[in-house]
Design a binder for these strands. Structure first.
Length: 284
DNA sequence: CCTCATTCCTGCGGGC
DNA sequence: TGCCCGCAGGAATGAG
């Protein structure tokens, strides 16, 4: 599942293989993949053709490619999206949704997405943050991230701490896997109330988020292939470093207590019942 | 404004 | 063996 570290790995691939090149052809093979571009496929293509890609940017789980026109090509990988840099003679993937070709020939850029939760769109306001991403908060690895504002924002929420981490407006880039990992590192139960959460706990949690995101980016970097912009949907290289996610019943790496799994927000939360004690007044 | 449930989608694997 | 159903889950949407 692409969260911030996986998306950052893709961004680095785009920076290397796509920035500086001019788009000359756009093929939309599935309309749902550009559903967030409300003007449709023809408009989407017209805004891209002839444009040079000037940079590869990221905020949270969103990517964007600023264009010479001042617009930006915005991408979100959703659950199963991949941006692949491949030579045109390679056979189309089963779930190929959008293809971009460039003035200098190979390689082309392909958006492949089995479940079509992700998608592409052209948004105005490319050089800075595209307008369509105005509601996405800075992620914890952004140099301009404001730690104090995060702590106070968290303490103003009337919800559970994991729900707050998954909300992309307070901060961004954290998904179900890294939320559970960070909460385990910080020894905080996922249903602990955010309201007036002690500031030291907030800071410990923020540090844990940074720790796990940074470590995962390093792991993601090791799997980067020279030819592909690698979105490894299986993320096999992360599995070995996960402490709680997907490990129900296995012993906690710190204390040996069997890990638990709870249903929450329609998905699973994994946690250690000893290190992350259930709060007296949980907020689900 | 704030919080939260619902909905979108497809492949896989467990159970019978 | 084959079918059904649950599960994986990010973020837009609308209800309250």
């Amino acid at each position: 599942m692409p969260e911030l570290p996986e998306v950052e790995t893709v961004r680095r691939g785009l920076e290397r293989w796509v920035v500086g090149r001019e788009i000359v052809a756009v093929q939309v093979l599935h309309p749902r993949a550009i559903r967030r571009h409300e003007a449709g496929a023809d408009d989407f293509a017209a805004l891209l053709i002839g444009q040079q890609v000037e940079a590869a940017m990221r905020r949270g789980k969103f990517l964007w490619l600023p264009l010479a026109s001042g617009d930006a090509l915005v991408a979100h990988l959703g659950m199963s999206g991949q941006l692949l840099v491949e030579n045109a003679d390679l056979p189309d993937e089963k779930h190929l949704r959008v293809r971009l070709r460039f003035a200098d020939g190979d390689p082309e850029l392909r958006f492949v997405d089995q479940r079509t939760f992700g998608g592409l769109a052209v948004s105005a306001g490319g050089a800075a943050l595209p307008g369509s991403l105005a509601h996405i908060g800075r992620d914890p690895l952004d140099p301009e991230f404001d730690d104090d504002a995060f702590v106070e924002g968290l303490r103003r929420r009337r919800t559970g701490v994991k729900r707050a981490l998954l909300d992309q407006t307070l901060t961004s880039g954290i998904g179900n896997i890294y939320a559970d990992e960070a909460l385990w590192i910080a020894r905080v139960h996922w249903a602990r109330a955010t309201e007036n959460l002690p500031r030291p706990v907030c800071r410990t949690l923020l540090a844990a988020v940074r720790e796990v995101l940074t470590a995962a980016i390093e792991a993601g970097g090791t799997s980067f292939d020279a030819l592909y912009v690698n979105v490894n949907g299986q993320s096999g290289y992360f599995d070995r470093s996960l402490h709680v996610y997907g490990r129900e019943g296995e012993p906690c790496d710190r204390c040996g207590t069997p890990l638990r799994r709870s249903k929450f927000m329609g998905r699973s939360s994994y946690w250690c019942p000893k290190d992350q004690p259930q709060p007296r007044h949980p907020h689900y």
